[in-house]
């Protein structure tokens, strides 16, 4: 009898634990909507989403976050454009071309890169990348009257830091995908006279495309959600996302102002959080449909 009670209790406790994840996702969604929506109604969605003037503490405050949204989209796109080819080639190296001795050196390095705290990437970006880009900026805009100098803290810095930060994700997932390609496919290609390199680019990579796509999407998710590293290197003023402009992302907008914001300003920051959350949920949706498709194949 006692034993039966214990067994029953154990099952109930375990099932409660399992529902924690459901409860967490449910309440995060609920809280993001409940805190993010009011400002949209109060300030008007056109005013927030399609205005580019961000003056939250002015006498007549304006909460346009168009540039902030654009920065996140453009910045993420460029970071993926830069990071994915490098990541994919590294994955090809690890899965196909590397001799064991070299793979044994590169793979741990990739794993360690994934473990380095994001703030440290920000620190190095700020102290190495920014001065370097500032010199480049001085050369490029030497005679310019209109250019506002950023000291190297601009979109380009943020993009480079993001590209480095998504590398480990892209590499490890693409490598898994490349390794899952059946060896017969490669053998056939080689037997037909294709060189090993041609085989990789014409056979192996196309065969692994859904896994590589998953890697890209996960990389996008990483880049969109990154906050602390880019808040140190991106300059933090609201501008149109051009390479040598100081910019503010969705994430860095929250980081830099949540500490002191109040009233409607604070609510708008939650709206920014909600927009970020919607982006992430869309990315999650795309990812799970890719993974589902892969399983069906």
């Amino acid at each position: 009898m006692v034993r039966h009670t214990i067994e029953k209790a154990a099952e109930i406790i375990f099932s409660l634990c399992a529902f924690m994840a459901v409860a967490a996702v449910f309440s995060i969604t609920l809280y993001m909507i409940a805190n993010g929506l009011p400002a949209i109604f109060q300030a008007g969605w056109k005013e927030i989403l399609f205005s580019s003037v961000w003056q939250p503490t002015a006498q007549e405050p304006s909460f346009g976050i168009l540039y902030v949204i654009l920065t996140s989209i453009v910045g993420t796109f460029l970071a993926v454009l830069l990071g994915v080819p490098v990541g994919l080639l590294t994955a090809v190296f690890l899965a196909e071309t590397a001799p064991d001795s070299l793979a044994a050196v590169i793979r741990p390095a990739v794993e360690l890169l994934a473990g380095i705290p994001s703030v440290i990437y920000g620190v190095l970006g700020m102290l190495i990348l920014n001065p370097f880009l500032y010199r480049l900026e001085q050369k490029l805009f030497a005679g310019s009257q209109t250019h506002q100098f950023t000291g190297g803290a601009n979109l380009l810095s943020a993009v480079i830091v993001l590209a480095v930060m998504i590398l480990p994700t892209v590499i490890s997932i693409s490598e898994t995908a490349l390794r899952a390609v059946p060896p017969e496919l490669k053998a056939c290609s080689l037997a037909l006279g294709a060189s090993p390199v041609t085989t990789v680019f014409r056979v192996t990579i196309p065969a692994a495309r859904s896994g590589i796509l998953a890697a890209v999407v996960l990389g996008v998710g990483r880049a969109v959600g990154e906050a602390m590293a880019i808040s140190l290197v991106s300059g933090n003023s609201v501008n149109l996302p051009l390479p040598f402009q100081s910019v503010r992302f969705l994430t860095t907008a929250i980081v830099s102002e949540m500490g002191y914001a109040g009233g409607l300003h604070r609510q708008v920051l939650f709206t920014i959080g909600l927009i970020l959350f919607v982006f992430i949920m869309m990315i999650n949706g795309i990812l799970s449909s890719i993974l589902k498709g892969e399983r069906l194949e």
């Binding site: 995060i28 996960l218 998710g221 959600g225 990154e226 906050a227 994430t251 992430i280 990315i283 999650n284």
Partner: peptide
């Protein structure tokens, strides 16, 4: 849950 960024 594992895809939600830490700022959220």
């Amino acid at each position: 849950l594992s895809g939600i960024p830490s700022i959220i």
